[in-house]
Design a protein around this nucleic acid. Structure first.
Lengths: 145, 145
DNA sequence: CAAATAAAAGAGTTTTTTCTCTTCTAAAAT
DNA sequence: ATTTTAGAAGAGAAAAAACTCTTTTATTTG
């Protein structure tokens, strides 16, 4: 609804990696795909982008894989969304008008501003590392089954 | 972002028709398409759906066209969204998980609940007829140029 | 009743998004 | 150094969404 499917996978993958690499171990691509129910090759490509933008880290070779370092753990979900979907959910017009603005607003402009701001605050205040606890405790899930 | 493009056109068209048919005149499909900057045939099909679901009314023959009666004017934007996009923005999981629920929540479930509820309230409380005034006064716009 | 006007319907195309497959490259372990 | 493991890259197929075109049907007006 709010994110592209690609972005949904991205967020789920990052949260998954953050949890699994909490103790320093690296996670392989197959395990990630299985862990979040996503197409292997598709999530591989997404992670390549996230890796380039230093949202996740990766290591090659035996026992290699993806992980998330201390720095990246502090990043917000908004950083992930920006890499994948850009700023459209933060700035785009609810009715799809390209030149909708404060001075030339669509009829829903002010109403949507409130919603967009709420999304913005939510995504900026949630850090990648925030979800480990509830996942570990089995209080939240990131996978269909 | 929140709506499909089809749904954006639908909302804009309905608001346009509501304004133009305020005095009882009917609006032709070409005028609607021009008035909201949309593909003629595409919006025609969308309006057929909305007409079937009685969000808009239509009349055939010379001087025919689309209009919105008193009853329909009281309907909310949520009614339009439901016809076009269904309930996904009201109920769907932010991370795209099909079985995300209160008892088996995704990590962002409670945060997104707040956002979804805000969207729900906004769309339910805005009626189709609410926007005439600001459009008439030139305080809001529904068209790119 | 005929002509004019406009909606209804449906087939079909284009574009975008999602997803797959194959090949290549890097690097760690032995 | 060689093997193994895994990521990087790119072409491209499949599916979904957006959009176009043509034909048909309805109905009002004169």
């Amino acid at each position: 609804m709010v994110f592209s499917k690609t972005c949904e996978y991205a967020i789920r993958a990052v949260i998954y990696i953050a949890q699994k690499s909490e103790d320093g171990t690296k996670v392989g691509i197959k395990e990630i795909a299985a862990g979040i129910d996503s197409p292997v090759h598709f999530i591989a490509k997404i992670l390549q982008d996230l890796s380039k933008r230093e949202i996740v880290q990766s290591a090659k070779g035996p026992n290699g894989g993806f992980y998330i370092n201390k720095d990246a753990r502090q990043k917000s979900l908004a950083d992930i969304v920006m890499v994948i979907d850009g700023d459209r959910i933060f700035t785009g017009c609810g009715l799809g008008l390209k030149n909708c603005s404060e001075s030339k607003p669509c009829p829903l402009h002010s109403e949507f501003k409130i919603i967009r701001d709420k999304i913005k605050v939510t995504l900026h205040s949630a850090t990648i590392g925030d979800f480990n606890k509830s996942l570990n405790a089995g209080l939240s899930f990131i996978k269909e089954r």
